[in-house]
Design a protein around this nucleic acid. Sequence first.
DNA 1: CTTGAAAATGGAGACGATCTCCGATTGTAG
DNA 2: CTACAATCGGAGATCGTCTCCATTTTCAAG
Lengths: 189, 189
Amino acid sequence: MTTAKPLRADAQRNRDALIAKAREVFAAGDFDLRFDDFAQLAGVGTGTLYRHFPTREALAEAVYREELTAMCDRTRDLRATLTADEALAAFLRGFVIHLHTHKGLARTLATLMVTRSGALAEGGQALGQAITDLLTAAVEDGSIRDDVGIGAVMMTLQGICSAFDHPGSQVDADGAVTLLLDGLRRRPA
Amino acid sequence: MTTAKPLRADAQRNRDALIAKAREVFAAGDFDLRFDDFAQLAGVGTGTLYRHFPTREALAEAVYREELTAMCDRTRDLRATLTADEALAAFLRGFVIHLHTHKGLARTLATLMVTRSGALAEGGQALGQAITDLLTAAVEDGSIRDDVGIGAVMMTLQGICSAFDHPGSQVDADGAVTLLLDGLRRRPA
DNA sequence: CTTGAAAATGGAGACGATCTCCGATTGTAG
DNA sequence: CTACAATCGGAGATCGTCTCCATTTTCAAG
């Protein structure tokens, strides 16, 4: 999967330059910049841009790849320290905070989930798996209900990501997580 | 608001033809048809199309206007027959079923919520208000919690609409509603 | 039934974004 | 150093969106 293909020196340089500039642009909130302009800003030709990143989403995914793996790691750390349901809660709370400080990440995840292009790009795929593992563990130790599927949870998360540019989104997103966590608790009666 | 502006005979005819054709196209699942082609199919010029419907969303909203008002009416009927929380539950269950038989509606609502163009087009606005009323009533009579905002619920609904083209979405959407309703229940302890 | 003015039409073409193609350039193995 | 392959760059093809305005249609007043 993680095919390590040796990249020629100049190719690597250009790729890095593109990602670096794109990160700046996203950080500035300019998500809808004309795609070709990413090339110009990075000082490469449009052909080079398209060769490295066939689509806007591919570029976004590369920019946030680090963040994505960090989140995956986080799920594992939490699993090691806390009970399954605590880990789930901690992760989701952290997820919202993380999205808040990286608006571009929210948009990227939303797009990846909607297009589900080629079954989500690699990083999105990994995060999805990590969350699935968290949920599965919590179901197995009986701390959350088992009568609703993972997909239902993912839909809610997709809502959070999609709606994250609206003003006041952080409070609402946190509320949505509260509802989700309480809804997931095993029905007492 | 509902400004009744008399439309010239030919204008009305063309408008209706556009909506009718668009309804067919959406029913066939072809949501991303080239916008100009809606005009060609309806036998009018592109200028006419744009005059009546400045954007793709405006056309979609017109197509589903009936559905939208029907849903608004439904919230009121349910309020008249059931308790506030029963009405909310019944509405959301019905909502999912409705989306399932009208995939185009799901996509339209998702788009309207994302763009929130001019504070949502008229129909979407009305539906949002109707849902808000349902929630408010349930909060007021104490059947659902009051410590999370309406926005949190809307986020979840946005997720349901956004994810509705994925296969197996109906089951997942129903699960998401289950989680939402249970999450909204006043915490017992 | 005119008739004149306002309303509406339609479709060619301007525009802006995406993406491709290929001759020129650069890196690297031998 | 040479030759070959990998990569580059950016002009321009392509495609969807939207505008503009000369022409046609409607309609109310005479």
